[in-house]
């Protein structure tokens, strides 16, 4: 923090421009990293509503000839995966608060959570191919490995140890993120019948 200076100041229009430029950059960054179709599908799914018709080029809705029981099973499977993702996200949120000020492991955890969110939205909105889903999972795992490495360097703790310290009272939760991610891998794999086809699954009602 620098001392205040009467010699330097923003003109009113300069300050307005600075704020607008900052927000415009932020919005552009956020726009670039967001799948709006999947996001809209997630909004409808959270409210338990039928999502709007897909935009041209988007993945198809479940086949009309698909048996209702199969659709229910698929919806349950997606809900299960989404719940699992949310549980992992909650664990990462807890451990990301370790340390004071900017911490490198926190950046990796933030990125991991963003990719998890993309995965959740993509699966809920049936916008991901298997390759895309597993690509996101792979990226999350990479970020978690880097977070673990930096945590060990900065705090002498593994990611799992840090988690146990943060949520030690919740013994029933398995804080081994490697196991949790492997389990998520298995669940996502079961969602896809054909490896390179968009997931033909009904959006969930989260």
């Amino acid at each position: 923090m620098t001392s205040r200076s009467a010699d330097f100041h923003f003109a009113d229009d300069e300050f307005e421009a600075l704020l607008r430029q900052a927000r415009a950059r932020q919005v552009a960054d956020l726009d670039a990293g967001w799948d709006f179709d999947a996001g809209l599908a997630d909004v409808y799914a959270r409210a338990g509503h039928t999502p709007p018709p897909p935009t041209p080029g988007a993945s198809s809705q479940p086949s009309a000839s698909e048996p209702a029981g199969q659709q229910d099973a698929e919806r349950d499977a997606v809900e299960d995966v989404c719940s699992h993702i949310e549980m992992i996200d909650a664990l990462l949120a807890a451990v990301s608060k370790i340390g004071e000020g900017p911490v490198l492991h926190g950046s990796y955890l933030t990125m991991a959570r963003q990719y998890l969110m993309q995965l959740r939205l993509g699966l809920a909105g049936r916008r991901l191919t298997a390759a895309q889903a597993f690509g996101l999972l792979s990226t999350v795992k990479h970020d978690l490995r880097e977070a673990d490495r930096t945590l060990r360097l900065q705090h002498g703790l593994s990611l799992e140890q840090a988690l146990r310290e943060r949520i030690g009272e919740l013994r029933e939760i398995n804080t081994d993120l490697s196991q949790q991610m492997d389990l998520l891998d298995d669940k996502v794999m079961r969602l896809f019948n054909d490896a390179d086809e968009p997931a033909a699954l009904t959006p969930t009602s989260h």
């Binding site: 932020q26 919005v27 956020l30 996001g39 933030t110 963003q114």
Partner: peptide, 20 residues
């Protein structure tokens, strides 16, 4: 949603939230 979603996210981030 398409027009305002990111600005809303930025607004909440300005209040201390992480992007997720």
């Amino acid at each position: 949603y398409r027009e305002e979603r990111s600005a809303l996210v930025g607004f909440v981030i300005s209040h201390g939230a992480s992007p997720p």
